[in-house]
Computed example of a mutant assay.
Amino acid sequence: MSASPEVVRGPELAADIGGTHARIAHVDWEGGAAVLSGFRKYRCAEFSGLSDILELYCNETGCDAPVRFSAAVAGAVSEGKVLATNVPWDYGFDQLPDRFPGIEVFPLNDYHAVAIGTQHLSPNEVLQLTEGDPQTDGLAIAMGVGTGLGAAIRSGFGPSLQVFPTELGQTRLGAHRGLEFEVLGLLAESNGFVRVERILSGPGIAATYSAVRRVLGLEDNELAPSEVVSQAVDGEESAYAAVQLVVSVLANLLGNLAVMLSPRGGIYISGGVTPRIESFLRSPAFYAGLNANEPMAGRISDVPIMMVRRDDIGILGAAHWMRLRTTGAITE
């Protein structure tokens, strides 16, 4: 998996592989910027391994066998090996050359990829929630609200780029008052704590909705997260209260991160959940939660907070990671 000269001998592919789906795209380059095309999405459980998915992708898109492949994966990556249990098969990156001779493979953690991808977004690919221009080489946080809550911290650019993984989703939540206090009491685990991703995730929205209905003395409808958000948009009382609570927790978390790290490179929020709650991210409740630490409100306002509009941010980051590796800008 060593870097090679910057002479492309054939197709380059990049992917974002999660527990449910593998998303793949073809990568071209224009002035150092990745241009993605030929998107395909596959259900991982329908294949016996990654090489089968890549072969089908090439057959469907008519591209030749790839010579380079970079993949963002939901797991820890060390020396080209992936430690993950959320896919139905071993990634088998070291076996890809058996199917695609000469291929170079560059796996990386999914939020490592998202963090890199945020450096290559255009202004129309983000929704800016607070004022301020992100500093290109400033400290930044990339986080995503999806099946769970993932996050990484990055600093620097190009050869000086550094990305630090976190376990933000496993940190402890503290309740404030009223409905939030009662809901967190119902969501507490056996140790009495509530992890952040217990609320800030797709399953967390559904769990919060169920807890809100119990607090209000209503029967639990057991709705899917998307159904909860849809009902909240329509103004249904318990769904609206649940989504507002989720947004309040997110806003408080963002405010705390801004105070702790002062990430002038920005805080970028991605993931499958955030586009669904976009209207709530522009509500007074969101900004009230963001600035709840009133003495630090000025410091928080200096941090640009943005919602990422690109759903292929992981693929974009994986593509640029491949570029950094193959040009020798970063060796590992």
Score class of each variant (00 low, 15 high):
residue 233 V to P: 02
residue 240 Y to N: 09
residue 259 V to H: 02
residue 258 A to I: 14
residue 248 S to N: 09
residue 236 E to N: 00
residue 228 V to P: 09
residue 258 A to K: 13
residue 253 L to K: 12
residue 245 L to Q: 07
residue 253 L to E: 08
residue 223 L to M: 08
residue 231 Q to T: 07
residue 253 L to H: 12
residue 247 V to C: 08
residue 243 V to I: 10
residue 246 V to N: 05
residue 260 M to C: 04
residue 251 A to Q: 05
residue 247 V to M: 05
residue 234 D to C: 07
residue 250 L to A: 07
residue 234 D to Q: 14
residue 256 N to F: 00
residue 254 L to Y: 08
residue 245 L to I: 11
residue 226 S to E: 15
residue 251 A to H: 04
residue 234 D to V: 09
residue 229 V to A: 05
residue 244 Q to V: 07
residue 229 V to P: 07
residue 250 L to M: 11
residue 247 V to Y: 10
residue 254 L to D: 05
residue 250 L to T: 05
residue 225 P to T: 08
residue 231 Q to A: 13
residue 253 L to P: 10
residue 229 V to N: 03
residue 256 N to G: 13
residue 254 L to H: 07
residue 245 L to E: 02
residue 250 L to Y: 01
residue 222 E to D: 12
residue 223 L to E: 06
residue 244 Q to A: 11
residue 225 P to F: 04
residue 227 E to N: 05
residue 240 Y to K: 13
residue 234 D to P: 04
residue 235 G to R: 00
residue 252 N to I: 12
residue 251 A to F: 10
residue 224 A to F: 12
residue 242 A to Q: 07
residue 238 S to D: 09
residue 239 A to K: 00
residue 242 A to D: 01
residue 248 S to W: 03
residue 240 Y to C: 12
residue 256 N to S: 14
residue 244 Q to F: 03
residue 232 A to L: 04
residue 222 E to Q: 09
residue 259 V to R: 02
residue 230 S to I: 06
residue 235 G to W: 05
residue 245 L to T: 09
residue 233 V to N: 00
